[in-house]
Design a protein around this nucleic acid. Structure first.
Length: 799
RNA sequence: GGGCCUAUAGGCUAGUGGCAAACCACCUCGUUUACACCGAGGACUCGGCAGUUCGAUCCUGCCUAGGCCCACCA
């Protein structure tokens, strides 16, 4: 009698076994089509969360399926540990502030932190059974990644896609960094609408604003051309209160007569419209706010105050001067930096950009060439491309990241780029290889770092270039990019863009997009406090149960986390365990020889199994692992356990002469079912394989097999590199269907009569059914425990 | 404001132009050679309105609700 399945002990043991035996090691010389996966490198910003467990499980289903199907799976693993998220984690854990330290010390601290943190972090992915080759590993901050990222910069520059300009850039005063379009989000905040009096000659005009601190940067007043109320003001000048300078009053369609008082001030730069006006009317640029979030000299007596203080003071002074007529509390949406939640400001600053707005048509074509799974995710890409308004801002004024390979000549200011052969370069330490064109040999290093997406959008190259040159060409373009849908607009999009510019082709053929995990219908997030820790789930139910749950929703769909589903998964695992033990209890004298005759009922069962295999294979090909799961699950539970095992029990218990046929079919059908489940539940299937199926001569590293007498006969060292079951036998199974229908009716009768399922009966069935079932009547007799089967209308008599 | 997705039993999910399904929970019964983490059975359901159709849960349109992405935000 086998003991209970101890998932904790087994899963840890199997993780070590896979590692020791190099089961998932990529072998470039292996035959078979290469299937390269652009594994998402998780951001090192804390612990793994359940959304990770969910989406990495789903991509692993596909990786394991392709491996068993015979593809040569290239499945690297990386961590995204450059840039802000990691900085923030280090600041928090080590209780330091980057800006209080020397840059070098801070970077050193980050690297030390990563060294001790990463193994623990990565173990989370091993624990859920991700079958990456963890030796093909990259960190987006290591030398290798820096070299490739900087090369990308040089190459884009060569292709005239890089420029640096003085531009109103979105700026986070809190993080003191430029922020790209993708790093901002909306937040609803309470604010006050202040109605302020501007003088036009002797006339008063009222202008409403939530940002009175921008008054010193006011450059114009606008009203809508159709708005008759203000027509008389055209061409006149208004005097800015408190600051006493004059600005022109102009017409522009973007002024909304319905909003505020219908007339609006334009300040550079209060918001995006201000920037458009500035451009359209060629207005001067005034900077009221400095990069550290303080008022500039332009603000006169408010110079040096932070934004909020200045706002309060200015409101106070306006009140005193009688220039404030109304204050209304409102709540509105503003752009905030997604990392820190603080309001974004626009400031004039020198930033590096990648020029790509001119390529929107091409971008749509690139997106159309990808195979999207599920298909509807493509529209998100398209909508993003159509909505692009700015070029890609790639510089961040932070510390921990890939530096720009750039210096500036101290004399003429010319930007000097590093040469390819000196990469990776740290401009703070290294020097250009040549003098500046102007003959000067002194340089100012660029201190900015490249935005993390600039580096992670090179993930295919970063992974591939870990391999020897000779095989790199087989790996690109890759077969698959798996990822979550919220970063289609940045990671996916930027990778497609870069690949097409650098190499003239898409980086992969397929993309698979996971949904996310919800709790009671809401997205899980730290800020909402509704997170579930995957490590706790695994402790309680095991990784297989977690994966079983992750296989429960279709690709791209969100899935609600319900503990019940984990219970179901665990139950299924127990059932697999028990059924396998039972099968092998009855195979002690099995000799692996194919019996001379396969009994009819066994044959019919094999045909059923065959169509299951066919369906599951098709589902995996279509990324529909959830369909494969539910079909295999149902087949195993009801067709295999509840029906087939019951049917063959008596034949084996009573040692009938045709029992070899049953044994042969038991062995092979259970093996096939295990293989179908192996991509989804890699641990329990491996354990059963190792204990029963593998030839003990090959199992030196796993411990002894369980059953005495019976010897497994399979050669592969792991079920995960065994061959995916094939499907050959097709045919009709009408007799078996009828058989099961009758069996089920008999069971109903027994239940109705409140009898045991084992109660002995006399069964009567119709003549035509008797005829149809003539080859399998003996089995029907066995499974229903009928003393005899008579020809009559259906009837169950108890003896 | 634009877009995408979703709406099926008490809960979570399948699915189909013609009987609506699995699992959990619930109720009844059984259970001594794998499994009480079992087996047999029961009960309950297609968001609303219109259209196409012999027939719509499924196709079309509108509405409602929720989620997500984007834009706007003086």
């Amino acid at each position: 009698m086998a003991e209970n399945y101890d998932f904790k002990q087994v899963e840890e043991k199997i993780i070590k076994f896979w590692e020791k035996e190099n089961v998932f090691k990529f072998n470039p010389n292996k035959k078979g089509q290469v299937y390269a996966i652009d594994t998402p490198p998780p951001t090192v910003s804390g612990k793994m969360h359940i959304g990770h467990a969910f989406s990495y499980s789903q991509q692993d289903f596909l990786a394991r399926y392709h491996r068993m199907k015979g593809d040569n799976v290239f499945y690297p693993f990386g961590t995204d540990d450059n840039g802000l998220p990691t900085e923030r984690l280090v600041e928090k854990t080590k209780n330091v502030h980057a800006k209080d330290m020397s840059r070098e010390d801070f970077i050193k601290l980050c690297m030390e932190f990563l060294k001790e943190e990463l193994p623990r972090f990565i173990h989370g992915w091993k624990r859920i059974g991700v079958s990456s080759d963890f030796d093909i590993y990259y960190s987006t901050i290591n030398e290798h990644s820096r070299r490739i990222s900087q090369w990308s910069f040089l190459d884009l520059h060569k292709k005239n896609r890089i420029y640096r300009k003085d531009a109103p850039a979105m700026w986070c005063p809190e993080c003191q960094t430029g922020v790209s379009q993708v790093e901002i989000k909306d937040k609803e905040i309470e604010s006050t609408f202040n109605t302020i009096i501007f003088k036009v000659g002797k006339e008063n005009i009222k202008i409403a604003t939530t940002r009175p601190e921008f008054l010193p940067a006011c450059v114009a007043i606008f009203y809508h051309p159709d708005d008759k109320r203000f027509k008389s003001l055209k061409g006149k000048k208004a005097k800015v209160p408190l600051f006493d300078f004059e600005v022109p009053i102009l017409e522009d369609k973007r002024a909304d007569p319905e909003k505020g008082t219908g007339i609006v001030m334009c300040c550079t730069f209060g918001d995006q419209t201000d920037m458009e006006w500035q451009k359209a009317h060629n207005l001067p640029i005034k900077e009221a706010i400095t990069p550290n979030g303080k008022m500039s000299e332009l603000a006169g007596k408010y110079n040096g105050l932070n934004i909020k203080e200045a706002r309060e003071k200015i409101i106070h002074d306006l009140k005193d001067a009688g220039l404030l007529t109304e204050q209304k509390k409102i709540s509105h949406f503003v752009n905030v930096h997604e990392r820190c939640g603080k309001e974004i400001e626009f400031i004039k600053s020198k930033q590096w950009f990648v020029k790509y707005l001119d390529l929107r048509e091409d971008m749509l074509k690139w997106g159309a060439k990808l195979k999207w799974h599920p298909e509807f995710m493509k529209t998100r890409y398209d909508n993003w491309v159509k909505g692009l308004q700015w070029d890609w801002l790639i510089s961040n004024q932070r510390y921990f990241g890939v530096p720009f390979p750039v210096w500036y000549c101290k004399k003429c200011g010319e930007a000097i780029l590093a040469e390819e052969k000196q990469l990776p370069v740290n401009p703070l330490k290294d020097k250009p290889l040549k003098k500046c064109k102007c003959g000067n040999n002194e340089f100012i290093p660029e201190k900015d770092i490249l935005n993390t997406w600039f580096t992670s959008s090179m993930s295919p190259q970063i992974a591939i270039k870990l391999m020897p040159d000779s095989i790199q060409k087989n790996l690109f373009p890759m077969a698959l990019r798996p990822q979550a849908h919220e970063i289609i607009t940045f990671w996916l999009f930027n990778t497609v863009f870069k690949s097409n510019i650098h190499f003239g082709k898409n980086p992969w053929e397929n993309v698979m997009i996971s949904g996310f995990v919800t709790l009671e219908g809401e997205k899980m997030s730290k800020s909402k406090g509704n997170v579930v820790e995957p490590s706790e789930v695994i402790d309680k139910y095991g990784a297989d149960a977690l994966r079983f749950w992750a296989a429960g929703s279709r690709l791209g769909e969100d899935l609600d986390y319900q503990e019940k589903d984990l219970v179901t998964g665990k139950r299924f695992i127990t059932k697999l365990w028990n059924a396998s033990n039972f099968v092998f209890m009855n195979l002690k004298d099995y000799n692996h020889k194919k019996p001379k005759k396969i009994e009819k009922i066994d044959e019919l069962f094999l045909i059923k199994l065959n169509s299951l295999i066919k369906n599951c294979t098709e589902h995996f090909e279509e990324y529909e692992y959830s369909k494969a799961k539910s079909e295999a699950e149902k087949f195993f539970w009801s067709m295999f356990c509840d029906n087939y095992l019951e049917i063959v029990k008596k034949r084996i218990y009573e040692n009938k002469e045709n029992k070899e046929s049953a044994q042969y079919v038991l062995y092979h059908s259970l093996f096939s079912i295990l293989k179908l489940m192996a991509p989804l539940m890699p641990f329990i299937t491996e354990e059963i394989y190792q204990l029963y199926f593998k030839n003990p001569k090959n199992s030196s590293n796993f411990g002894t097999q369980k059953t005495s007498g019976f010897l497994g006969n399979e050669k592969e060292k792991s079920i995960h590199i065994s061959q995916w079951p094939s499907f050959e036998k097709e045919g009709k199974t009408d007799e078996l269907d009828l058989f099961i229908e009758i069996l089920s009716k008999v069971r109903q009768e027994k239940t109705k009569a409140q009898k045991s399922m084992k109660a002995e009966i006399i069964l009567s069935i119709e003549k035509e059914n008797m005829k149809k079932l003539k080859d399998i009547l003996g089995d029907l007799k066995d499974v229903t425990n009928a003393k005899e089967i008579k020809e009559d209308s259906f009837k169950v008599e108890f003896v």
